[in-house]
Design a protein around this nucleic acid. Structure first.
Lengths: 235, 235
DNA sequence: CGAGGCCTTGATGCACCTCAACCGACGTGG
DNA sequence: CCACGTCGGTTGAGGTGCATCAAGGCCTCG
């Protein structure tokens, strides 16, 4: 089915940012296939051929890389309006798995066609470059986190990052549901699930947050920020 | 001074990959300013305005991000033919420092002009997208390293990565000089310099490598590879 | 010759991992 | 309906890999 970008509520978060009506129209004709992925279904797998980028229309994804020896690591959690598949452009093969953490919908964007139309829509090309660049900046933030923060700092940074992203999407920045397990959080943050659990408990003891299983409530945003070692939160 | 890409020995590593003679000509007219940076000089600083990408023509750089609280982390080491500044596209501000580890030369590539000509040279645009994507893949590799490897595995992975990159540039894959200090390696690998030093000593005791200060000789590539936990080496 | 940068090595401590027990929620099948 | 297994989460006890602190060696440079 055709999913016109023109009428999409994510226009301000997604690829069309900064385009005029006509340009959005053109983009909308390239973006086809609103595709549904069930919870724990794969959007793509590492090693499969790359054809399209995917924009998340609704739902929540994780991406993870797998080593030959079985070690696995979550490289990111992805929300509505974000673009998946950027890693696959380089070798025309996906380098990670993308798995839905809840029932989700994505728009498929055939990459070759995106490149075609970005020749005639410079602002689209420019915005696409910004999106790729932002991904690089984000990854540098994670590298900083993994390379130099303690467990509690990592978790605080993670929560603030989620909070900010929920806020940008019109949800509460103070209260939200985690879509991922402690193990997945741990994998992303370079920690074991027990350590994640203990860090949650510790933040709760200090009345900074309230944890009820996957439900998180932030009581004291500024003290949570102090827990990060004052690092700016991830993009 | 004009530095024509057409006659550059790095044509096969750098931006011009896959372009025909005429296209290289056009690119060469955009790429100006062969700029010299002395050892420990800055190519760019975090927070300064973004205008241009830089291609390394000779020399060696590190990039590092700095937090408000003074924590610092090396996010990458960069060799000839690689592109610096990709992180700055997103916010039009550099997000990291780039510092020369030896006397170096770079070509300056005004980004706006690069976008202009990539509209008329689709293969240039496509290759540029591949380069950005490769950077994302590389960062995911580092995240995996930081998130799930032990000190010795990290160092082995790091050495293999360097080895491969020297090989690609026509140097020996078995013997090379490190341009960075133990502390910089540690920062990149999320370790303290003492730990890096001990890991070097351990690999030497096992006759896998020979270390003489910054000079590294790899005696047994396959055993070094085994030390990585069989992960593929970073891109 | 002395100072400072870089590296190595040893001793000690601690943050996180590992292993293990237990709990509650949920789904399934007898 | 309840018994049971499974899955995700919490918490405790103990071990370990790396950080930390400290001392000393080598090299360069003023």
């Amino acid at each position: 089915m055709k999913s016109s970008c023109a009428t999409c509520s994510l226009r301000e978060l997604c690829l069309p940012v900064g385009l005029n009506d006509h340009e959005i129209q053109v983009l909308g004709e390239v973006v086809s296939h609103k595709k549904r992925i069930q919870r724990s279904g794969y959007l793509h797998r590492a090693g499969t051929e790359f054809q399209s980028l995917f924009a998340i229309r609704s739902g929540f994804f994780k991406t993870c890389v797998l080593e030959e020896d079985g070690r696995q690591q979550v490289t990111g959690f992805h929300m509505t309006g974000e673009l998946l598949g950027l890693d696959a452009i380089s070798a025309e093969v996906h380098t990670c798995d993308a798995i839905a953490l809840e029932d989700s919908e994505v728009c498929e964007i055939p990459f070759a066609r995106l490149e075609d139309i970005s020749r005639i829509i410079p602002s689209l090309m420019h915005h696409f470059h910004k999106i790729m660049s932002r991904e690089i900046v984000r990854d540098h933030g994670v590298m900083l986190l993994l390379g130099s923060m303690k467990a509690e700092e990592r978790l605080a940074t993670f929560l603030l990052n989620l909070s900010r992203r929920f806020l940008m999407r019109g949800y509460s920045e103070y209260e939200f549901n985690l879509r991922m397990t402690r193990e997945e959080i741990g994998s992303y943050l370079g920690l074991k699930l027990e350590t994640v659990s203990r860090a949650f408990s510790k933040l709760q003891e200090e009345d900074i947050i309230v944890v009820d299983n996957k439900r998180i409530k932030i009581n004291d945003m500024s003290r949570l920020r102090m827990k990060t070692g004052n690092s700016s939160c991830l993009t």
